[in-house]
């Protein structure tokens, strides 16, 4: 194809898009190099979907410049469409067709002839581990299988850049893992990927580089490790039995931490960022021995997006840590469809 493969996959300069009162993109700058997986991480309403839809030529920005695969997306959107594959926030597959039929249809719309469309659909369905279910109506698929098929649909045109908007939101952990595997396998074949997510661990699992967006702007940019170190390497978290004890608990844990302890009264937890991981847990246990506080639980975990976010912005990423609306129908289907 005619695309310049040494050019950055994405070059966005000062992208702005306003919907009424809301500035969904507020001067977003981003350059993505070829051969990498880029995660755009941000809370609900940060502008992730608007950015992806702008890349996919579905939204026209009010201002700014955008090149995708070296093509000016505002001047030649039709050329950009030959270079991208989109899997949006919802699985956009036809329930009344089989998995294979869905992929064949999209393959035809990418421009494959009938015979090639058939071959490509078969190859992709195999690759996604859906071969057995491939001749069943999508209606009978679980939420996770639908998402995988949707991913497949964005692949059949062999796009240079894949755009995945919150590919695992609403999936149960098992389906999420399966989808992660599918995405990793893709990356290994050399497709560039931009994915959005609300979860730091997802970005961590899949991406070489993470860009954190908030209010339509990039507020941090780095490798997963770099970003997490902003909020301390690890977090020790302790749950008190009685909420009254939380101040005493926070005071006792403060000296262990690399930063201020955070108290969550709703869940009776104190979290403190630490540098030394397991050693810090041991230290915490010793400290707790010395004070008269009953503790239900003590643990070590990685920083969450919320904590990175708090460090960066001084305010919590509302709802970013809560699992988004769960696709309960998908989970029920999972039972029906499990082999």
């Amino acid at each position: 194809m005619s695309h310049d493969t040494s050019a950055p996959t994405i070059e966005a300069v000062g992208l702005r898009k306003r919907f009424g009162e809301v500035e969904a993109l507020a001067g977003l700058d981003l350059v993505a190099e070829p051969g990498r997986v880029l995660a755009v991480l941000g809370p609900n309403g940060a502008g992730k979907t608007t950015f992806v839809r702008t890349l996919a030529t579905l939204v026209r920005p009010d201002a700014g410049e955008l090149r995708v695969a070296g093509v000016d997306a505002l001047r030649h959107p039709e050329r950009v469409r030959r270079a991208i594959g989109l899997a949006g926030q919802y699985a956009a597959v036809e329930q009344a067709m089989t998995g294979r039929e869905n992929l064949r249809m999209v393959a035809r719309l990418f421009g494959h002839d009938r015979r090639r469309a058939r071959a490509v659909a078969d190859a992709v369905i195999e690759r996604l581990g859906l071969a057995e279910a491939g001749d069943r109506l999508v209606r009978t698929y679980s939420g996770g299988m639908r998402r995988r098929l949707d991913l497949g649909a964005s692949l059949v045109g062999a796009p240079r850049l894949l755009l995945l908007d919150e590919p695992t939101t609403g999936l149960d952990p098992r389906s999420r893992n399966e989808l992660w595997d599918a995405i990793r396998a893709l990356v290994a074949t050399g497709t560039d990927v931009l994915l959005t997510t609300q979860y730091l661990d997802e970005a961590d699992q899949l991406a070489h580089r993470i860009v954190i967006v908030d209010h339509g702007r990039v507020i941090a940019d780095g490798t997963p490790g770099e970003l997490k170190s902003l909020a301390g390497r690890d977090v020790v978290e302790v749950r008190a039995r009685r909420a009254d004890d939380l101040p005493a608990l926070a005071a006792a844990l403060a000296p262990l931490g690399a930063g201020e302890p955070r108290t969550d009264t709703a869940t009776s937890r104190v979290a403190v960022p630490v540098e030394t991981g397991r050693a810090a847990v041991a230290a915490a246990v010793r400290v707790l021995d010395d004070i008269d506080v009953e503790v239900d639980d003590i643990g070590l975990r990685r920083p969450t997006l919320d904590e990175v976010f708090l460090t960066l912005t001084g305010r919590p990423a509302e709802a970013a840590d809560e699992p988004a609306e769960t696709d309960t129908r998908g989970e029920q289907d999972e039972l029906v469809a499990s082999r």
Binding site: M1, T5, S6, P34, G35, R36, A107, F110, G111, H112, R116, V120, A123, V124, E126, R127, L155, V156, G157, A158, P159, R160, A185, V187, A188, T189, G190, T191, D192
Partner: peptide, 21 residues
Amino acid sequence: TTVPTTVTAVATAPAAAIEPP
């Protein structure tokens, strides 16, 4: 050129690249 340098390590990637239309 878009293939990451780590590709040789990924023995589990079976699929041949799909020819673009």
